[in-house]
Amino acid sequence: MPELTDPTVRLRSSFLAAVAEFRAEPGATPVPWFVSDVEPAARTDPAAFAGYVARVLAERTEAGMRADAGVPMTTLWWAEGDQMLGRLAIRHRLTPALERVGGHIGYDVRPGARRRGHATAMLAAALPVAAALGVSGALLTCDGTNTASRRVIEANGGRLVATEGGKLRYLVPTTA
């Protein structure tokens, strides 16, 4: 059964295969930001990949946070055995920009693993993690045209609170 796990070098091959799937996906422009975030050296050199994993894990702290994010975030991978199926990022707090677009939690399921319930299960597994990080109600956003993401959010108790500029904003409880 899949579960959330910290990014790890153990999943390097599967993670890189997922990155390749995202890059090759027809009509996927732009590719998810985390795909673009993988340095070219990390795609070919195991030591550079270990550095990438260390950087992603460090983003959980104020000192290690991404400058372009402006907040610490916990990245987790959705994996079953040695197969990386998706990734999820929990932002520890929101900036005004993240309140409009992005929210507390963002997730992606690799193209070859979609339509199997992974996104719904991944978000459900992430909500207690968000609660432990002090997020009492997670804000999630999605495009109004993204029916799949809307269903995932609503299946996890998301309540639509606003629509702005084609984006839907949902509040999702992080505790039962």
Score class of each variant (00 low, 15 high):
Met1Asp: 14
Met1Val: 12
Glu3Met: 12
Val9Ala: 12
Val9Glu: 08
Val9Asp: 12
Leu11Gln: 01
Leu11Gly: 07
Ser13Leu: 15
Phe15Met: 13
Phe15Trp: 13
Phe15Ser: 13
Ala17Met: 11
Ala18Thr: 12
Val31Thr: 03
Phe34Lys: 11
Ser36Asp: 14
Val38Leu: 00
Val38Met: 04
Ala41Met: 09
Ala42Asp: 01
Ala42His: 05
Ala48Ile: 07
Ala48Arg: 07
Phe49Ile: 01
Phe49Val: 00
Gly51Arg: 00
Tyr52Trp: 10
Val53Leu: 04
Val53Arg: 11
Arg55Gly: 14
Val56Pro: 09
Leu57Gly: 09
Ala58Lys: 08
Ala58Gln: 09
Thr61Leu: 01
Ala63Gln: 06
Arg66Met: 13
Asp68Gly: 09
Ala69Cys: 14
Gly70Val: 07
Pro72Asn: 01
Trp78Gln: 04
Glu80Tyr: 04
Leu85Ala: 14
Leu88Ile: 02
Leu88Tyr: 03
Ile90Asp: 04
His92Met: 15
Arg93Met: 13
Leu94Thr: 04
Glu99His: 11
His104Arg: 06
Tyr107Ser: 02
Asp108Gln: 10
Val109Gly: 05
Val109Lys: 01
Val109Tyr: 03
Val109Cys: 02
Arg114Lys: 12
Arg114Val: 09
Arg115Ser: 09
Arg116Cys: 15
Gly117Ser: 09
Ala119Pro: 12
Ala119Arg: 04
Ala119Asp: 10
Ala119Lys: 03
Leu123His: 05
Ala124Pro: 05
Ala126Leu: 06
Pro128Met: 08
Ala131Tyr: 02
Leu133Asn: 06
Leu133Gly: 07
Val135Pro: 06
Val135Met: 05
Ser136Asn: 15
Gly137Pro: 13
Leu139His: 01
Leu139Ile: 03
Thr141Asp: 04
Cys142Lys: 06
Asp143Pro: 11
Asn146Leu: 11
Ala148Gln: 03
Ser149Gly: 04
Arg150Val: 11
Glu154Lys: 03
Ala155Met: 04
Asn156Arg: 04
Gly157Val: 06
Gly157Gln: 06
Gly158Glu: 03
Gly158Ile: 00
Gly158His: 07
Val161Glu: 08
Ala162Thr: 10
Gly166Met: 07
Lys167Thr: 15
Arg169Glu: 05
Tyr170Asp: 00
Val172Lys: 01
Val172Cys: 00
Thr174Asp: 04
Thr175Pro: 09
Thr175Gly: 14
Ala176Arg: 15
